[in-house]
């Protein structure tokens, strides 16, 4: 059963299957939201803070997610799998470019 994920920064919601990462689910929307980088837990651009909801994770680089981040559920969306409905906000280093007031004309709307 798919779960609903809400990006609080822009109010967009999408569905995400339990076997899909939060990033894969969002990519199916074909619109802007969480920045997409390596999709392997190594580059850190898709960092989000999970505000509510249950989930599981796979390995991600400590360069981007340390113990404090884990305690505060600041994780890489490409490595987080939903176990229920979730809400999150984007905190990766490209956050401004994807959630800022000015749309980036190079990216699909």
């Amino acid at each position: 059963m798919a779960h609903t994920v809400r990006i609080e920064d822009n109010g967009v919601s999408y569905t995400c299957a339990p076997a899909e990462s939060l990033l894969e689910g969002m990519q199916r929307l074909g619109r802007r939201g969480i920045p997409v980088g390596c999709r392997g837990g190594g580059c850190g651009v898709c960092k989000v803070e999970i505000l509510e909801g249950e989930f599981s994770t796979r390995a991600m680089s400590r360069d981007h997610v340390d113990d404090d981040d884990r305690r505060h559920r600041r994780l890489l969306a490409c490595r987080v799998y939903p176990a229920g409905d979730l809400s999150l906000r984007v905190i990766g280093k490209l956050q401004k470019s994807v959630c800022g007031a000015t749309p980036d004309p190079r990216l699909p709307a």
């Binding site: 980088g37 390596c38 999709r39 392997g40 837990g41 190594g42 580059c43 390995a59 680089s61």
Partner: peptide, 8 residues
């Protein structure tokens, strides 16, 4: 492209 750990 990227390997499974995000090394391009």
């Amino acid at each position: 492209a990227w390997d499974p750990s995000g090394n391009r």
